[in-house]
């Protein structure tokens, strides 16, 4: 059984079909990349899966349940974790508190009002921080973190709820090339260990081709390709959509800032 099944998903904004009858699936344990040029509908697609947008039509099934149109917090409760394109934390809290809060929410303890947070789920939070290499920074104010560390922290928060599926919106956006590889290596290792399926969007094609198990390509709201790195790279339609001609896109990509 697939972790996530998308069927005929559509969404229009003022007459423009941002996502047009898209169908695909995320298999268990898969590291699936969703790519496409700007305006292809990646974010819209993502936001429908994570509950920020309600689809016009189509279905989104997760763990044998229809989740289309549910609020994001309920989708999260069912086991769909998420990271954001622009990483940020709860700025008024320390690093470890950020993780503790996610653990508290997962344990259904949000409305508890007596025992302090400091004494709840701390060990587990530190453990998670250790796994993303942030244990040393546990007591720092999260607003002081460097951007790369914020990304790591956000990943630790996403892992706190032990999700079955992780949605990562451009996990390496805004990072230097070296950091990118480090982070995505870490992510891949941890999700494989836990058997978490991942659906991610990404601009950096070297990341995509080096790490994704499978790639699906969106253009103007439609799904135009689905396959492994080699198949997608050689797909004429994809090349045309990206550059109009058949030039390799890695090289072009590197020219961009």
């Amino acid at each position: 059984m697939n972790t996530l099944e998308i069927a005929n998903l559509s969404k229009s904004f003022g007459g423009v079909r941002a996502v047009d009858a898209v169908t695909f699936a995320v298999r268990p344990g898969e590291f699936l990349a969703l790519i496409g040029p700007n305006g292809a509908g990646k974010s819209t697609c993502f936001n429908m899966i994570n509950g920020q947008l309600a689809p016009d039509s189509g279905s989104i099934r997760f763990a044998d349940r229809e989740i289309a149109g549910l609020p994001s917090r309920m989708i999260w409760q069912l086991g769909v974790g998420r990271t954001f394109q622009v990483a940020a934390t709860f700025v008024s809290m320390t690093v470890v508190e950020n993780v503790q809060l996610a653990l508290l929410s997962h344990a259904g303890e949000i409305f508890r009002g007596w025992r302090p947070v400091a004494r709840r789920h701390r060990e587990r939070a530190l453990e998670l921080l250790g796994e993303v290499g942030m244990r040393e920074a546990a007591e720092r104010a999260s607003r002081e973190l460097a951007y790369g560390d914020i990304k790591r922290l956000e990943f630790a928060i996403a892992l706190a709820s032990a999700p079955k599926l992780l949605l990562m919106d451009e996990p390496t956006a805004g990072m230097a090339p070296r950091e990118r590889t480090d982070l995505i290596t870490l992510v891949k290792r941890l999700v494989v260990e836990r058997g978490i399926s991942v659906l991610f969007t990404e601009h950096s094609m070297d990341v995509v081709f080096a790490f994704a198990d499978r790639i699906i390509v969106l253009a103007r709201g439609k799904l135009i390709a689905d396959g492994d790195a080699k198949a997608v790279r050689e797909n004429a339609l994809v090349q045309q959509v990206y550059f109009g001609t058949g030039k390799s896109f890695e090289r072009k990509r590197e020219l961009l800032p």
Binding site: F84, T89, F90, M93, L101, L104, I110, F111
Partner: peptide
């Protein structure tokens, strides 16, 4: 307590 943290979390970023 968790409740207070949740309140602050909602203030810091409702989306998150």
């Amino acid at each position: 307590a968790p409740f207070g943290y949740a309140m602050r979390a909602g203030r810091d970023s409702q989306l998150r």
